[in-house]
Design a protein around this nucleic acid. Structure first.
Lengths: 220, 220
DNA sequence: AAATTAAATTAGATATATCTAAAAAAAATG
DNA sequence: CATTTTTTTTAGATATATCTAATTTAATTT
């Protein structure tokens, strides 16, 4: 079962929305994620359903099938491997890689991905800290919590951001926070939820609850 | 002026056929090169003409424009850089790279190609010995002649093949001829044009005129 | 529960890219 | 130079992917 590029993009969006905790994925949600109109989504859902990568009942809802999930995971695997390549080998900044990886993820060649994986030394996480599924679609993710849910004096490591808009990524870069940074919570302000953290045992940083809740960490 | 992937492929084929020595490029030639039907070619020629990458007069013929040539050269540049990447970095064999490079050549990101070029150390030739155009479309190619046109006792180096079909490439590999091999012409048979060559000062090889005329060499 | 609002789908259009079959133009042949 | 053959183009169909506008279904409100 081969998917077109558009179908791959829809399926990836559906997978992300399904995993995003939401109970059901709506046509509007998908339209928002893909930057398209609900009418186009309805059309595509019918096609994806015919290809059996989703189960779909009109006006009711949809569910991604096991084979659909596997296909989505392989696309995600390719996307994240290419991101590692761009950052590690071609000196891209971690907030510049998304668009190019969106194109590269659709290249079809199992051998290419196998070799790329080896060339990059089998990375387990992409430059944003997101886990890279293996060739069987298995993801070994560490438990991650929003920074604002850590307690005072706890230490951990930034592993990802929820909102990966270029604007937010640039903001993080500017204040000196980055994926992989080791942090310690120095203080939490009760009434507004803002936090004060120590980055790499050197720099003190103050951030609003809005910002802190967008940063995901693993505790150590 | 942005081209679709199909348009890029047609334009590249037209460029190759134009450079291939032939005085005029026919609809049938293009259909053969692209693996499509003449009717589809006619349609596409109209579109390429509208986008001003070719000049086209129905039933008469076509000419690639300067801007068309530049676009084709950039696609070829990308294709060949990716081939170098696949062979040098990912251990692909030189007869395995074409299909994947056909996909990778359509990735749009000037920065990516700039960085890839640097990462590969600004290669001037691809794994088949074909020259890589620079970012301005300039190609510095060495004078190349078919192997069967060399004279007895002359020495040189294999730099490319005319017919790069997988079958032919595998044949070459099998007999021990490869891009970069240093050769010396030991004998030429007048009546059938076949040649006997010494490869890397070790191995003696006998080949028909058909094979020899498909192998391009630079003399030294 | 009827009326209103929101969400989702269908109908119909457009654009790309392809095909087969038919028609037109150019080239080759007797 | 008229006829045949080849080449090329057009006409009409199909498939993908998208849109706007209209319709249908579901959810919400009164």
């Amino acid at each position: 079962m081969d998917l077109t590029i558009a179908e791959e993009n829809y399926l990836k969006a559906i997978y992300h929305l399904s995993e995003g905790g939401k109970k059901s994925v709506s046509t509007n949600d998908i339209a928002g994620e893909i930057q398209t109109k609900p009418a186009s989504v309805s059309d595509m859902l019918r096609r994806l359903s015919e290809k059996q990568v989703i189960e779909y009942r009109k006006y009711y809802g949809l569910q991604i099938t096991e084979s659909g999930k596997q296909l989505a995971l392989q696309t995600i695997r390719k996307h994240r491997l290419w991101e590692v390549f761009l950052v590690d080998k071609l000196q891209f900044a971690w907030d510049e890689v998304h668009e190019v990886a969106e194109q590269l993820e659709h290249i079809q060649s199992p051998l290419l991905i196998q070799r790329l994986d080896a060339f990059l030394n089998y990375p387990k996480f992409d430059p944003h800290g997101d886990p890279i599924p293996d060739e069987y679609g298995d993801v070994r993710s560490r438990p991650r919590i929003p920074l604002n849910e850590m307690n005072i004096d706890q230490v951990g490591q930034i592993v990802a951001v929820k909102d990966s808009s270029a604007a937010f990524l640039r903001y993080l870069d500017k204040v000196g926070a980055y994926i992989g940074a080791r942090i310690k919570v120095l203080d939490k302000v009760e009434f507004d939820g803002s936090v004060e953290i120590l980055v790499d045992q050197k720099k003190t940083l103050f951030m609003s609850k809005d910002v802190a809740s967008n940063i995901l960490v693993v505790q150590s």
